[in-house]
């Protein structure tokens, strides 16, 4: 019987999160609609942009929470499928361009060397969207995306021209979520590492690599 209650609880939480995400989607779309009308006074425009940025962040965190919850409950989180990488980059650019442009930041996909990857498209897109959204705070004028094949891994790279990651971020142990909260990625980065690790093929495991070049460089390596 206990297992049955567990299942009910799982369904309840999953559907509540689903509901919250739908709410956020509507908030985001409403904000975008008002922005598009261009009728709001400049101060209100700023507030709308903040609203969009925060709502996207909340969305990313919810995705992470739901993901951890599912993992905790033992259900499969990562379901890989064949993914058109160029198409994915195009979608990431389309989704984030306007918001970044409002801060004078240009978003570009510079190269895509992988035609078809094999991973969970939804999760990877969610992780990358969160990282790109983050650049809204930290980039100066430019964010570039790329997808390359390195040592047999498909590597997604998000590079900004900001200050780069702080030393604590760069050395943080992957299993410690508290250490990841500096650049307000919080749960996001911790979840990104989990998503990467859950992508396994033969004896190879996916990973997240952070570096400063000199701006922040986020890499997602997928086997």
């Amino acid at each position: 019987m206990e297992q049955h209650e567990d299942e009910v609880f799982t369904d309840l939480v999953a559907s509540a999160v689903h509901d919250l995400k739908n709410s956020l989607a509507l908030v985001l779309n409403a904000a975008e609609q008002i922005t598009d009308l261009g009728a709001a006074p400049p101060a209100a425009q700023q507030a709308l942009l903040l609203l969009q940025y925060e709502a996207r962040r909340a969305n990313a965190d919810l995705m992470g929470l739901l993901g951890f919850f599912k993992l905790e409950r033992g259900s499969a989180l990562v379901r890989p499928a064949v993914v058109d990488c160029e198409d994915l980059l195009a979608e990431l650019v389309a989704y984030n361009t306007d918001l970044l442009a409002s801060r004078g930041i240009r978003l570009e996909a510079t190269e895509c060397r992988v035609e078809e990857g094999y991973f969970d498209r939804g999760l990877v897109a969610g992780v990358l969207n969160a990282v790109i959204n983050n650049a809204y705070r930290f980039a100066r004028s430019q964010v570039t995306l790329s997808c390359t094949l390195e040592e047999g891994y498909t590597v997604f790279r998000v590079l900004d021209d900001g200050e780069g990651y702080g030393p604590k971020m760069l050395s943080a142990a992957p299993q410690d979520p508290a250490e990841h909260s500096h650049r307000s990625t919080g749960l996001g980065l911790f979840f990104a590492r989990r998503v990467a690790e859950l992508h396994q093929h033969r004896d190879r495991i996916g990973q997240v690599v952070l570096s400063n070049r000199p701006g922040g460089c986020f890499e997602l390596w997928l086997p």
Binding site: K21, N22, A25, R79, P80, A81, G122, A125, G126
Partner: peptide
């Protein structure tokens, strides 16, 4: 997002495209 991998795998007959919320 969280169910997309699932949906892509399950879906037979391949639809012509996917959109991930939001």
């Amino acid at each position: 997002e969280s169910s997309m991998g699932m949906v892509m795998g399950v879906i037979e007959n391949n639809p012509d495209g996917y959109l991930v919320k939001p």
